[in-house]
Write a protein that binds this DNA or RNA. Structure first.
Lengths: 140, 140
DNA sequence: CTGCAAATTCAAGTCGACTTGAGGTCAAGC
DNA sequence: GCTTGACCTCAAGTCGACTTGAATTTGCAG
């Protein structure tokens, strides 16, 4: 049988049913049918969910991601959009790297308190302007 | 005069008054007094705000950050905590780097659609497990 | 003294991505 | 045939970090 029960999707993807239903409501995924009430999915849904996860990680919103699938369901991701996001990612990475260095320095710095450390203070200067970028909510 | 009017804090920090009040309510900052209704701040508040911004960028919540100031107002940031955060940052950076590479590849990949590209598919494999990490809300 | 821009308070609203809860349905195993 | 547990629906709630709005108060320029 070439369909997955929602239970299997849950097991394979690690996502809770509520999330799958939410994604469906958002138009991100679509069950191929039902067995009774139970949703049935095409196995491809797993790849699609992975793609969604990837997009979220890259900083796209669910709505952004929904826009990346053509009406046929094939991903039609605009290359410009990808590059733009890669650029933004690059900038984020730079800032986070600086930050990581700063944190490590602060953790080892012998100054009595962090404000007495020139490196730390310098970090404060440059960290003022933060880029705004969506998040990833936890699954507490 | 060694105090800043809230208006000056706004100009120097770029934060709106509502945010300053919110931070105050959270115990993150404290005005030194008032002129009429208007809050007055010690110039140090700017550094403190920078520190808060830094902490947010590093992924700390406002509550976390509030806990990093001793009762005297001096930052007392636990070094273990800093190192832990630096580690987490390091992991995040790695993932984002891989992602950036993947996005760039996808943007240039000649495959008819992204799913036909092996590199992209490989990216999907590894991006499944995302670390959970707070966000930064925008200011639109 | 008057006017007004800039502050103030307080409660309530927003946003995205989900989760939770109450009450209902049903396929499969005994 | 009956139970059971996994699923269902739908509305409402949550979380963090702010923002917004209405009604008020002020400091200061003219």
């Amino acid at each position: 049988m070439d369909t997955l029960d929602i239970g299997e999707v849950i097991r394979h993807s690690g996502l809770p049913a509520s999330t799958l239903r939410y994604y469906e409501e958002k138009g991100l995924i679509r069950p191929t049918g039902r067995r009774g009430l139970r949703r049935l999915y095409h196995p491809d849904v797993l790849q699609r969910l992975a793609l969604i996860a990837l997009g979220r990680t890259a900083g796209f919103s669910l709505d952004d991601i929904a826009g990346m699938f053509g009406p046929d369901g094939q991903p039609q991701i605009d290359r410009q959009q990808l590059l733009a996001r890669a650029d933004e990612l690059e900038r984020t990475i730079r800032r986070l790297s600086a930050l990581r260095d700063g944190l490590q320095h602060a953790a080892h710095c012998p100054a009595p308190n962090h404000m007495a450390c020139p490196t730390f203070r310098k970090l404060l200067q440059t960290a003022g302007t933060a880029p705004r970028h969506p998040r990833q909510p936890g699954k507490p």
